[in-house]
Amino acid sequence: MQKKTNSLLMPLAKYTLVLPFIFLMTMSLSAKTKVNCTVHKASATDTIYTTVDKQPEFPGGMGAFYKFIGGIVHYPAVDMESRVQGNVVVVFVVEPDGSLSNIKAVRGPSETLKREALRVVSLSPKWNPGIKDGKAVRTSYTAPVRFVMTKTLY
């Protein structure tokens, strides 16, 4: 007589999360352009640059950033049940000390995925700041956070 090993978790086991420290933009803008585009300017220290000589970088590069995110992200249950997936575009400012501020989710497939992307990006350790004319400056940065449910073969 054979034992049946059907469980309630078996249907869920067919689908797993593959959270993206994979893919996507390593930088929001090309560092080759030397144009001083500012998003906001109240004083010299408040300037937020969109184009700098050297873009901000997560320690270890974008692969390490997505690995960090993949290790702490929790796929919202409501989105998992509804099979909602896609990219959440997160925009933030990398401060001269490497901390992140003004973190906003500007686009995403659902409000719950946008909130989760904001949560994990806000937990990020300090970045290497953007450099303009040899000085660390406030730099606007855009990073996609990808939420994907992948069918796996068991």
Rank of each mutant, 00 (worst) to 15 (best):
T33Q: 14
D53K: 02
F23T: 12
S101Q: 06
Y49M: 10
L29S: 10
R115S: 15
M80V: 15
H74K: 13
L12H: 06
T45N: 12
I69W: 02
Y66P: 05
T112K: 08
Y66H: 07
V78Q: 10
P20N: 12
P56E: 02
A44D: 09
A105V: 00
R115T: 13
K114L: 02
M80P: 08
G98S: 01
S28N: 10
V106L: 05
K32F: 14
E57R: 13
E57A: 14
Y49K: 06
S43E: 01
P125Y: 03
G108F: 06
S101L: 09
S99H: 07
I69Q: 01
V93G: 00
K41Q: 14
G86P: 00
P59F: 03
Y75S: 04
L8Y: 13
N36E: 14
K14Q: 15
H74I: 14
K41I: 10
V91H: 09
P125Q: 00
I22Q: 13
S28A: 08
M10V: 15
F65M: 05
S122R: 01
L19S: 12
V52Q: 02
K3T: 12
K54F: 09
I69R: 04
F92C: 06
R83H: 08
T5P: 10
F68L: 06
A105C: 01
V35G: 07
V18F: 08
C37K: 11
M80C: 10
H74S: 11
A31L: 12
F92Y: 09
N87P: 05
G86L: 05
K34Y: 08
L113A: 04
M27T: 10
R107D: 14
T33F: 11
G71K: 05
F92T: 04
K34L: 09
M10G: 14
T45H: 06
S124H: 08
I22S: 13
G71A: 08
L29G: 11
K67A: 04
E95Y: 00
S30R: 10
A117G: 07
H74Y: 13
F23S: 12
K32T: 14
A77R: 09
E57S: 14
E111R: 14
N102G: 07
D46P: 06
I48A: 09
T26V: 15
Y66D: 03
P96L: 07
L123D: 00
Y15M: 15
L123H: 03
F65Q: 07
S82K: 11
K4F: 12
E81F: 09
G98K: 00
H74V: 15
P109S: 01
V39A: 14
T26W: 11
V73I: 07
V84R: 03
K104M: 08
N6H: 12
F58H: 04
V18C: 07
S82C: 07
R115H: 15
K126I: 01
G63S: 12
V93T: 00
F92R: 06
M10T: 15
V90N: 05
L24K: 08
N102K: 15
I22K: 14
T33C: 10
T47M: 03
A64G: 01
T50F: 08
P109R: 02
V88Y: 03
S99P: 08
K126P: 05
A64C: 06
G61D: 00
L118G: 01
G61T: 03
V35F: 09
D46Q: 09
F58A: 03
K32W: 06
A44P: 08
L29E: 10
N6E: 15
L12P: 06
S7R: 04
Q2W: 13
G70L: 05
L113K: 00
K114V: 05
R83E: 10
R115E: 14
A42R: 00
